[in-house]
């Protein structure tokens, strides 16, 4: 069944990929390896998973504002998420995504998305399944 969710555009663009859902906020500086895209924060629900090419679904960013540069580095290294869907986007993720050119939508009901779902972002619309 296809679910269509409406959100707020933070960075305009289209993206498609397999969802990687985190119930916890993500801190990019120290939390995600900019060279590989693998989440390395100890004890994080996504520890060991790669964000590369996925549609990353998480409540919000956290931690250092240098995290914006980490998101940019992920893109430079070809291991960035294809798109990001958040409950509440904050400046670290917003600026990082604009710097990196990654489509972002927020104010989305994340309970409707599961890891492994096929997700498409277009404008403020998130299509699941």
């Amino acid at each position: 069944m296809t679910v269509v969710l409406e959100g707020r555009i933070i960075k305009e663009g289209t993206a498609e990929g397999t969802a990687l859902v985190s119930p916890e906020p993500i801190g990019f500086l120290g939390g995600v390896d900019p060279a590989t895209g693998v989440v390395r924060e100890k004890g994080h629900p996504l520890e060991g998973e790669s964000v590369a090419g996925r549609v990353l679904v998480f409540p919000r960013g956290k931690g250092s504002t240098v995290g914006s540069y980490v998101i940019y580095a992920l893109a430079r290294n070809g291991v960035a998420p294809a798109g990001m869907v958040l409950a509440d986007c904050e400046p670290i993720v917003a600026l990082g995504a604009i710097m990196a050119g990654i489509a972002v939508v927020d104010q989305v009901d994340l309970s409707r998305i599961r890891s492994g779902d096929r997700v498409r972002l277009e404008g403020g619309t998130v299509t699941v399944g």
């Binding site: 986007c89 917003a94 600026l95 710097m99």
Partner: peptide
């Protein structure tokens, strides 16, 4: 344009 996107995103947040 990139700078304006950043300023607008923050303003909207």
């Amino acid at each position: 344009r990139r700078a304006m996107e950043m300023v607008v995103a923050l303003a909207r947040i």
